[in-house]
Design a protein around this nucleic acid. Sequence first.
RNA 1: GCGCGGGUAGCCAAGCGGUCAAAGGCGCAGCGCUUAGGACGCUGUCCCAUAGGGGUCCGCAGGUUCGAAUCCUGUCCCGCGCACCA
Length: 962
Amino acid sequence: MDYDPQELEARWRERWAEEGRYEADPVGADDPDTAAEEDATFITVPYPYPSGGMHIGHARTYTVPDVYARYRRQQGDNVLFPIAWHVTGTPIIGAVERLKKGEEEQLSVLRDTYNVSEDTLADLETPMGYARHFIEQHYKKGMKNLGLSIDWRREFTTNDDRYSQFITWQYETLRDRGLLEKGLHPVKYCTNEKQPVTTHDLLEGEEAEFQEYTLVRFGHGDTVVPMATLRPETVRGVTNAYIDPDADYVIADVDGEEWFVSAPAVEKLQLQGHDVTPKRTVAGEHLVGERVTNPITGEEVVVLPADFVDAENATGVVMSVPAHSPDDYVALQEAKADDERLREYGIDPDEVEEIEPVPILSIEGYGDIPAKTAVEEAGIESSADPALEEATKELYNSEFHSGRLNDEYGEFAGEIVEDVRGRFRDAYRDEGAFGTMQEFSEEVVCRCGGDVVVAEQDTWFLRYNDEAWKQKAHDVVSRMEAIPENTRGEYDHTIDWLNEWPCIRNYGLGTRLPWDDEFVIEPLSDSTIYMAYYTIAHRLDEIPVEDLDREFFDALFYGADAVEDPDERALELRAEWLYWYPVTYRFSANDLISNHLTFYLFHHAELFGEAQWPAGIVIMGMGLLEGEKMSSSKGHVVLPGAAIDEYGADTVRFFLLNSAEPWQDYDWRAEQVESVQTQLERFWNRAQDVVDDPGPEERPDLATADRWLLSRLQRTVATVTEAMEGSETRTASQAAFYDFEEDLRWYRRRTDRSRPAARWTLREVLETRLRLLAPFVPFLTNELHEQLTGTPAEDAPWPEVDDDLLDRGIEAAETQIERLVDDIQGIRQSLQNADEDVPEADPDRIRVTVAADWKHDVFGTVADLGADQGAVMGEVMQDPDLRERGNAVNDLVGELIEFARGRDDDELDALAGLDEQDAYERAADFLGREFDAEIVVQKEGEDVEARKQAVPFRPAIELEAE
RNA sequence: GCGCGGGUAGCCAAGCGGUCAAAGGCGCAGCGCUUAGGACGCUGUCCCAUAGGGGUCCGCAGGUUCGAAUCCUGUCCCGCGCACCA
């Protein structure tokens, strides 16, 4: 029977679907308190977000947990592996809108990358229609084609009414526990659309960060002139101010005061919680030459004109600290040099000439006036010099990390800027001398073309900064299994670093905030405990939505005593939940540690008891395609459907699981995938050979080679099992498939495979390997295992190591034969390298001389005492015969000690028990065939002496030509 | 900047104190098998060598050790994540 993956895989898919093979239900759930929970294994993976199609990276994300799920099933566990669909938030809505607008890029992705036909495009014009298309046509199809062992009865979307009831319960509970809080928060706000926007909506400035400027409230008469700065601690070093004389500025009423700010600042201030009424617009020139009062020092400084001031940024008025800002220093120099311009603005040049930098902090290596030093050392002559920016950045950095404030700073004096800035700012903010304004680090433009600015918005926060909550989350981390182990610290790090998290949005799919339906709970916040929902999803459908109220879920998750009149149905579902929970392993991508996974830990820590806390998380790496990042917009993707059509699902699975461990990055390379396909085909063909001629039913007498192969098989079982326990899919599949293939190659070379014992051995080996490989290539292994035994591989138990078949002695002997072959080959090669022809390079006879008995006795002592020259010599010299040999013994011990180093006791014992001569004699036929020569095995003794020194396990070898 | 991961022969990639000139795959070369090709098997693929040997080597520089690709320190380079976005 030829290997036809398409035909074979289609058949098994059908069988699985018909049988409902992977539908899992609690066992012994009729008695909920004593259900056999220890056998329950619950595997989850983040539900896909169907805002586009599935690509090969997704295929791996879902196949890794599938392989583990299949492994646990063969180990006898009751395994639940469910899936659902995450549609919350804006990406799907955004995609639909771009489609409806007829955006070319979006149409091209849909048509060309995801093969959406023209007549189905219309179905995609509603969010759920769009989601449904990708769920059904891509994800579900792809998952089924891959052979994922999912319980399909439990699927749902996060936009379902019942799911919303569940999330409503979660958020009401959290609010009652004081873990939700209302407050102001900066958001990206489009001034054109007059609404908040997400990163996805941006045309420019996706990388922009929020920057918090301090507004230093300089005074001009009764008018406040707020100067924006990122370095509030330099306020005592201000010598003057700068303004753009040609830009528009506004005198406005702000929160009952009169302010002077740039025109663009008005809207920003309004959006940031200020009550702003513009009174009149003036040119910046209006303030030029005027004096403004420093709120901290009380000093008056002059306002100078400057073109470099950007009225679009913050308030459009800046303070000048020439001692510490190379920018300001150079600007001041240039102002001093341009008397004419100063006069133009009615400023007395002599007054400007007198302005000297005022240092306010000290820093080693920069002299008294750091900015001056920096500018001069960099040879900067003008503000147009590009080196100025670099010098400014470098000085800012140095001052931040190692500058110490001077004495005039009082309680803040002597401290490093990095440590003191926040406190300094807060102190004066409380006092009223400072204000705050948020601004982006770069220009941000909405896809609609509108300017995006920072707005402060009323928002509900999850209080991840709550110390008690953090502590509980840390407890979860300390108790769970983190795979790989080096990720554990990242969870702790994230828990410590997380602050308040705004958990609602103004629009999007999902669950409305229960007490304010203007808002919707955002995607990372409605996906923290949904694993619990899987355990009951299929049975929830029987219950009317309106019954799923707070009390219902309280009874479900907290038991009959938690509510006054518990709903019986809720208590039944509670049994299901308790049976499956906790989640045994959650498989997820490494970039989700810093948000989703840690949220998952937080919410479980708070809402559920310790017994329901996550038991383990396995982190998965990223995928590349031909060495490059995948990108659906560039069409640089491989779709699972196409890959499965071309190679078959088993090949796709095997490649994805075998090319790297789950947590390592992997690279889909067509060439490598093809090679996997041919390897599987070869495996199939060899298996067919065994199926066709399976040998005797009863175990015959086995030859050495058979016993060797069976012993190797036991080691393989041990290696694969251990690897699977740690989710090391690469190690496991490598050992079961490729590594063992090496052993088989040797076996084939070594022995006659038509013997009945060989047939029996090969059958045994195949059956075991099929079971070991069943999690990886379920289609092929099920088929072959059924052909061989009548049952599919997945229904056969996971192999166990048979100690009776493990034989160290046989393996040690075989290793010696391999070594002998290598050595003979090495000698022959060396002779073949000769410039002249050497007849011995093609020997007629090979003489193998085994070391004398007394040498083996010495080795026995080494094996007993270990690699300890002194101890061995001491022991050996007790023997008068050996003592007589003197130096020869000393040299031999040295060599044997070297040999014994790094070998474990088991191996040394096996070698000590080995009859070397017998091993070689039994292999003589084989060696003769290999080298086409007569093999003479002899033992070193009184009448036999080899040309070369024979040492135990390293016989003398002589090649002889007639 | 902060955190994580990584730099191994022509390429991919394993190894993570001694059995390491370093698994396996790809590529390349030779031989066998074959009508031929493919597939398969054997051999070779850093340098030197007429007997299983020697030399150099695992980003770079130091160090620990009887012994380092493997441990430590420093350094250079590359990838990924860093929030209100799934």
